[in-house]
Nucleic acid binder design. Structure first.
Length: 288
DNA sequence: GCAAGCCTGACC
DNA sequence: GGTCAGGCTTGC
């Protein structure tokens, strides 16, 4: 599943392969993955690739055509959803099934978007629209200070697992890295977000940063579909401690990894390393 | 039938 | 405003 490390790997790959190249033609084979009218998308996704940004799990490709002033730069926003893949291949390369969009470059190569489940979306937008979309996302965890992280948790009554998946306060964490970070910080996934102690919250912030950094270093996690722009899988799956290891032994203590559903998402944790702490509610009197 | 990210709409 | 359920999609 593409989360921040996978998306950052794709962004870096594109930066190395297509930065400065010109998109000369756009072909949409499956309009469902395009936001807005496909003919506008086809008309507007043209020009030289000037920059590749990322926020959370979204990639923004800045395009500039000759007539554009700096003000009217366009952006191709890519969200990979669950099974989205972006690859760069020679145009004559056989087109794999589930390839929905092809962006032809002037050098004879193509940027291809392939997405088996079609949960991902491509969208052409103005800088204004991009700003508005990005402003709905919280900062990436590594871009947050400890104080910002603590403030974002304050008063939140949702389970910490669900809080980590909510992109509006903290962007880029999905199901895999949420479970891995909670294990790393030794926090039970059902703990109420706003009730984490200061120490736990800081441990979690550090754990999120550490897990994401390690995963980026290994080009992400490939369980089923994820590949980078060269078509290569990531290598972080060998480092997973709890995600999809239900019933297997905890690598730290040997207890059996458990799975619970939180907010409709499966959550994997070690019951011994991540005990559910009983916390007294503030201001509530002990009962006799 | 289940898994996933993200959007929408319902509810308090 | 927060929170949650539902729907999209398809390979296993």
């Amino acid at each position: 599943m593409p989360e921040l490390p996978e998306v950052e790997t794709v962004r870096r790959g594109l930066e190395a392969r297509v930065l400065g190249h010109r998109i000369v033609a756009t072909e949409v084979d499956h309009p469902q993955v395009i936001v807005g009218p496909p003919h506008l998308f086809q008309r507007n996704v043209r020009g030289v690739i000037r920059r590749l940004e990322r926020k959370g799990k979204a990639i923004a490709i800045e395009l500039r055509s000759g007539a554009d002033s700096a003000k009217s730069a366009r952006y191709l926003l890519v969200r990979l959803g669950m099974t989205g893949q972006v690859t760069v291949v020679p145009r004559e390369h056989p087109v794999e099934a589930h390839t929905h969009v092809r962006l032809a470059l002037e050098n004879g190569e193509e940027i291809r978007y392939r997405d088996i489940r079609r949960f991902g979306r491509l969208r052409c937008c103005t800088s204004h629209e991009l700003e508005s979309i990005f402003s709905g996302l919280g900062p990436d965890a590594p871009a947050m200070t400890n104080d910002e992280f603590l403030t974002a948790l304050k008063g939140r009554r949702t389970p910490i697992k669900s809080w980590l998946l909510n992109q509006s306060r903290l962007a880029g964490v999905g199901n895999i890295y949420a479970d891995e970070a909670l294990f790393e910080a030794r926090i039970h996934p059902l703990t109420e977000a706003g009730r984490l102690s200061r120490r736990e919250a800081l441990a979690l912030h550090r754990a999120v940063e550490t897990v994401l950094r390690r995963a980026i270093a290994l080009q992400g996690t490939s369980l089923r579909d994820y590949v980078d722009i060269e078509g290569n899988p990531g290598r972080f799956q060998a480092s997973l401690k709890v995600y999809q290891r239900t019933g297997e032994r905890c690598r730290r203590c040997g207890a059996k990894i458990r799975r619970v559903v939180i907010g409709g998402r499966s959550s994997h944790f070690c019951p011994r390393c991540q005990p559910r702490l009983r916390r007294s509610r503030p201001k509530s009197r002990a009962k006799g």
